[in-house]
Design a protein around this nucleic acid. Structure first.
Lengths: 235, 235
DNA sequence: TTAGATATAATGTGATCACATTTTTTGTGT
DNA sequence: ACACAAAAAATGTGATCACATTATATCTAA
């Protein structure tokens, strides 16, 4: 029988623990929407697919469950949680609140060299969009936000932001696709401009617009409803 | 040799898994500041103290680490993280942002019966304060906030709020103590009044004031600095 | 006494096994 | 063909073992 889950290859293990490698691998799969909501992730199944013993898989699943990337049902089955319209709205509002907070908290620490860095990352996103490499779009877009927020060396919001990204996992591919099709304004360039002017309000506006352009539209058009009805079977 | 960690007793196990019981027990210990920052929590040590095998302890530690209640060092040792002034400030600002968000998002769902419930919980807090039962103060105070926020049946912020509470664990006892000594206004009653009037701005103000009264003062007076210097050896 | 080396103990990680529960398949009767 | 019961397979949980790494204690020499 073929493995129940196909996973992108791992770039060769380093000195990390097996648990860490399994965690990173599963995390990436969830983030790019490779794991469909509602299908059970079994310990033995993943262990076989990743060619490790059940032990590190168990710990990685426990970790991802604690981060709300996975849900454990009463049956003790673990899966990417199904999305509902109301949960989507709450997650979106929460993401706006958390990321505008994180951005504003990072603003006092912004240096000119960091701004240059963000400009070049933004260029990488455009390149990835031209190449229709949506996984790269997702990862690089997140790198943009991460670099911005952790300009504040004491930033505490990042793990929560990443938890939200994971929970949007099934939709990030759709968001990246939409970015290419329909985007009119580059919100990242607006954010960069706000950073240059050290303008906290403009920064908040740009970040919120970026989030709503990227993923908010899914909730507006019938896209989310279609996804829910199809139980994540789109694409 | 006596166990390295003393833990409050568990109220007899239910149908839950051992891992869940261990998790709840450790969680409570961290929340009430029983575990001092910097001291290593060993798997075997906890397993012996709790009279279980290492397996469920490992999973509970992994879970709490993912929730940022515990930190894993490079040595792979796990402990309650040390506090710094800057981290404290970031966590405090984040708590204000998250909890005012959660409260505002819950406001449309507030019913009169829930307001009554909150009033009675607030009474329990006063009773606990009179009895100098600080653990009860902590738990009941959190129950007040939880009931409020999850009035919204789709609330997504609660796990993050609880993660922050855990990270404040070493200080919640100090906060509860201060509440008895120095509090002038009952911020919960202000919040309840705002809920009755369905006034979102007044609610935000009350929640923020409640948080800052409760834990913010620790950062203001030398209390935090003393705690950091003493490596959590106060009380 | 103290600094550094060596040995001993303790720890985290991963694999494997046993067992109870749950899921899936198979069988049976109408 | 379909509903229901029985059997078989799969799954999560917890315990135990082996091993490499890390921390602690002990020893030695100045």
């Amino acid at each position: 029988m073929s493995p129940s889950l196909k996973l992108s290859d791992l770039p060769a293990s380093g000195g990390e623990t097996l648990q860490e490698q399994v965690y990173q691998r599963l995390r990436r799969s969830i983030m790019i929407g490779e794991v469909r909501p509602g299908v059970a992730l079994t310990i033995r199944g993943l262990a076989e697919a990743l060619d490790v013993s059940p032990t590190p898989v168990r710990e990685a699943l426990r970790r991802l469950s604690a981060e709300r990337a996975l849900a454990v049902l009463d049956n003790r089955r673990v899966m990417v949680p199904e999305m509902t319209v109301q949960r989507f709205e709450e997650l979106l509002a929460l993401r706006v609140t958390l990321e505008t907070h994180a951005a504003e908290r990072a603003l006092p620490y912004i240096s000119d060299s960091l701004v240059s860095m963000l400009v070049s990352i933004d260029g990488l996103i455009d390149t990835a969009l031209d190449n229709d490499d949506y996984e790269e779009v997702i990862v690089t877009n997140q790198a943009f936000h991460i670099r911005l927020y952790e300009a504040n060396p004491h930033q505490q919001a990042l793990p929560m932001v990443e938890s939200l990204w994971l929970q949007f996992g099934p939709f990030l591919r759709l968001a990246a696709l939409n970015l290419k099709e329909h985007y009119r304004f580059d919100r990242h360039k607006e954010a960069i401009e706000a950073l240059r002017r050290r303008d906290p309000l403009a920064l908040r506006v740009a970040i919120e617009a970026d989030i709503r352009d990227g993923i908010g539209h899914i909730g507006r058009d019938g896209l989310l409803q279609a996804f829910v009805d199809a139980k994540g079977a789109l694409r």
